[in-house]
Computed example of a mutant assay.
Amino acid sequence: MKSSAWPAVFTVPRFTYDAELKLEQGNTAFKTRGILLSPDPKLKISILDGLAEEIVKYKVYPSDAEYDQVAAALVQKHPCLKERGSVTGYSGWKASLKYKLGNYRTKLRNLGCTEVAVNSVKHKPGGISSPAYNVKKPRKAEVNYCPPHPQGETEETLEAVRKILLNEVKKKNNEKNVRMLMDKSFSIRRHEVIKEPLIADFKTRWPALFRTEEVCAEFERITTIPLVSTFFAKLDGYSGKLMKMFANRGGVLGQRIKNLLVPTTRTDDIEVRRACIIKSLCAYLNEDPSSLVWEYMVSMCFLKCCCIFKDA
């Protein structure tokens, strides 16, 4: 299971020794005489292989923006690789990188990597030839889309862990053991999720997952991003613009929003401010804030946020 999210700044790795020598000579020629390097096939393969190996440390299905980020980082570190006639200077590298990742995924699939093998035709039931049949498609944010089982574990041993978890979740003040078992059984749970089971059946098999704390923990296991802190950080970043938007709203709705924002004038508590902003946003979108909070409390178990909104 991968533990690192996609980096804010992609670091281009060191390539093979001979490739680094060629790039060093090319960068020197570019700085002194402005000559761009035309990489030979061996050098280009070495560069693309190195980038592909670095990318799959984070995810095997990068987004288009992430391909842009990698290609831009490459020509920034090695300016001699910039392309003539390209607006960005790296569009060709980006296209080549996409093909390389596709071929690299095929190699991983042949080696039995579950993250990509699950999308192959031969893994589909009933001889269906469609690669997407009855299997959840990978999303760009899913760092751990279909991780392999932990070393030494099999489906049988993890199924036994799941059955133990059914008893542990019934005990009071047992969050630590539940979290440990949920971490251990993550891979088999993801293998079930990508087959898109019925929610009712899945909830019966994994009741612990529908606890408040486990919703957040599972999100972090899948994306390596903490859910609550990221949500509030983004909310705080947009709060200024949202407040301006609310202030420009007139009429009956504008007055209703002003009433919802009254608590922010009485205290500097950041939680009160967040709650009022979300309630006001609901009103701005002609939604009932109390209904929205109730929906989250019932169906998503996002109680930490909801309690804050409800008490403001």
Rank of each mutant, 00 (worst) to 15 (best):
T106G: 14
G112Y: 01
N110M: 12
Y284W: 03
C113Y: 14
T264S: 06
V9D: 09
I308G: 05
S120H: 09
I308W: 04
D268F: 03
P148Q: 01
K244A: 07
A141E: 15
E66M: 12
S130T: 08
C276A: 07
R84H: 10
V169L: 01
E214S: 01
K176S: 07
K98D: 10
P13Y: 00
T223Y: 03
D49C: 13
K44T: 14
Y145H: 11
I225L: 12
K140A: 13
P148C: 02
S291D: 14
T212I: 00
V118F: 08
L198W: 14
S120C: 12
Q151W: 05
K124I: 05
T114I: 04
L166K: 10
V9S: 11
S38D: 15
P263S: 05
A73E: 02
I278A: 08
L292N: 08
T154F: 05
E66F: 08
S3M: 08
N248Q: 09
L198N: 13
G50F: 03
E66A: 11
F219Y: 09
A8G: 14
P125M: 06
H123F: 12
I194M: 11
I270D: 09
E287M: 12
Y90W: 13
P138F: 12
D183E: 12
K171N: 04
K124F: 01
T11N: 09
F186C: 05
L36D: 06
V262C: 08
I199W: 15
E287H: 04
N119Y: 15
G127R: 00
A19N: 01
R273G: 07
K203P: 02
E295G: 15
D64I: 13
C301R: 12
E175W: 05
K171Q: 06
D201K: 13
P197C: 10
K82T: 09
L36T: 02
A247Q: 09
F246E: 00
K44Y: 07
L235D: 04
Y238T: 15
N144T: 05
S46E: 14
S185P: 10
N259E: 14
R14E: 10
Y17A: 15
S229Q: 07
G92M: 03
C113L: 12
M243T: 10
A160N: 05
K184N: 07
S38W: 04
D311Q: 09
G85H: 02
P41H: 06
S291Y: 11
S229F: 02
M297E: 13
K107I: 06
S4K: 09
G126C: 01
C282M: 06
P147W: 00
K122R: 09
V161P: 02
A275E: 04
Y99C: 12
A117M: 13
G250P: 03
Y133P: 00
G102T: 07
N110Q: 13
V9L: 09
Y238E: 14
R179D: 11
E159P: 08
P148A: 03
C306T: 02
R205M: 10
K57M: 05
A312T: 05
R274W: 01
G102R: 09
V143F: 02
W294N: 15
A217G: 03
C146I: 11
V121G: 02
Y284C: 00
V169D: 02
L285R: 10
